[in-house]
Design a protein around this nucleic acid. Structure first.
Lengths: 138, 138
DNA sequence: GCGTCATTTCGTCATATGGCAAAATGATAT
DNA sequence: ATATCATTTTGCCATATGACGAAATGACGC
C-alpha cells in the first residue's frame, strides 16, 4: 500500500506530469497533442504518460493511428482518485498551467493529422516559436 | 506555484517521509523518537524532517536539548493543507504505518532522555531487534 | 568559559530520474 | 505483404535523491 501510494505521489510530483494532468482535465488528448503543448520529445512524453497510467491516473484509448489518454474514470487503486481530486483543486491559477491551456487551444484547432506531421510548426507563429525564446540575451 | 506544488508533492512522495507524517498524526515527536521508529540514521531523519518543513508540512519547537516536530497548523503555502488532508485520509490500514504506530507506542513509553542515549536498544527486545531480522537466512 | 549532547550540515556514495536520439513496435492503408 | 507513421522501448547521459559517517552547530548545565 505504501508502495502504491509512493507510485501515485511520485507520478504527480513531477512538473511535466502535473501539467499533463491539468491538460487532460479539459478532456482526452492524443500523444502528439500533449507533446506539442509540453514541447518535449515524443519519447519523453510517452514515458510520462506511461508513468501516470501505471499510477492509475490515466487510461488510454486507440483511435486509428492515434492513442488518446484521459484522466482515469474508475479507481485503479486506493489513492488515484484522491490525488486526481487534489490536482484538480490545485494549480488553478498557475501561470504554467494557464499558458498550457492557451497553447492547447491553438493545438486543438489543428487537425491531429497535421499536428503529428508538423508538430509545433503547425501552430500560429506566436506560439510555435515558443514564448521564452524572444527574451533578451543574457 | 507549480514549483511549490512540486516541492510539497515530492516531500510526500518519499515513503520515509510519508511514514513520518503518519506518525505525527498522533502528535508531536522529537527527532530521536522519529529516528527510533523509522530505524534510520539521525542524519537521514533530520534531512527528511527538513524537507517536510521546507514543504510547509511541519513546524518545529525546541524544548531544552530536544526539537519537536509536528504537523503544520497554519498554511505555509497553497498546497500543504490539501496534501496533509490527503495523507491523513490515506494509508490508514497500511501495514508499515500500522507497525510504526505499534513501535511508536513502545517508543513513547521510554523517556526521551533514555531514548536519545540508547536509541532502539532502549526498547523491549521484540522491537529493538527489529521484526525482519528474525527471518531465515536466504 | 567549557564540555556535553541532540540535531544539523557536509562529503561521499550508489541508485533513481528525466531528457533525447535511435531503434523497435504495431496498427493502418495501399 | 509491405510501406507508413504514431507511439513506445532502449541506450545513454547529466542531474537529483536518499543513505550513511564524520564534522559542525548550538543550547544547556557545570
Amino acid at each position: 500500500m505504501l508502495e502504491t501510494f509512493e507510485t501515485v505521489a511520485k507520478a504527480v510530483a513531477d512538473p511535466s506530469r502535473a501539467r499533463i494532468l491539468k491538460l487532460l482535465e479539459g478532456g482526452e488528448l492524443c500523444v502528439c497533442q500533449v507533446t506539442a503543448v509540453l514541447d518535449l520529445s515524443p519519447a519523453t512524453v510517452s514515458k510520462h504518460l506511461a508513468a501516470l497510467k501505471t499510477a492509475g491516473l490515466l487510461q488510454q484509448r486507440r483511435d486509428g493511428k492515434w492513442i488518446y489518454y484521459r484522466l482515469a474514470e474508475r479507481d485503479f487503486n486506493a489513492y488515484a482518485r484522491s490525488f486526481l481530486d487534489l490536482v484538480r483543486a490545485s494549480l488553478q491559477d498557475d501561470p504554467t498551467a494557464t499558458a498550457d491551456r492557451r497553447v492547447l487551444a491553438r493545438v486543438s484547432a489543428v487537425p491531429v493529422q497535421v499536428l503529428c506531421d508538423q508538430g509545433r510548426a503547425a501552430l500560429p507563429a506566436d506560439i510555435a516559436t515558443g514564448s521564452a525564446c524572444c527574451a533578451v540575451a543574457p
